[in-house]
Amino acid sequence: MYALIWRAIPGPWPVKLLVALALVAGAAAGLWYYVFPAIDPYMPFNDGAVETQGGP
């Protein structure tokens, strides 16, 4: 999987490395700012209220 990505990136290896790092950074930012905030409310461990409304 990672080997495939590595081979799909064009250029000599320093360029490949840079592009790969940029890809990793992009994926991390996307997760951090969009994916994680979106899925966070569905996590079971952050409900602080007692069950007053018929459920947590």
Binding site: F45, N46, D47, G48, A49, V50, P56
Partner: peptide
């Protein structure tokens, strides 16, 4: 004040 207990868990308050 009410919150979850234990930390990162949902079993108690």
């Amino acid at each position: 004040l009410t919150t979850c207990a234990p930390k990162l868990n949902n079993t108690h308050r």
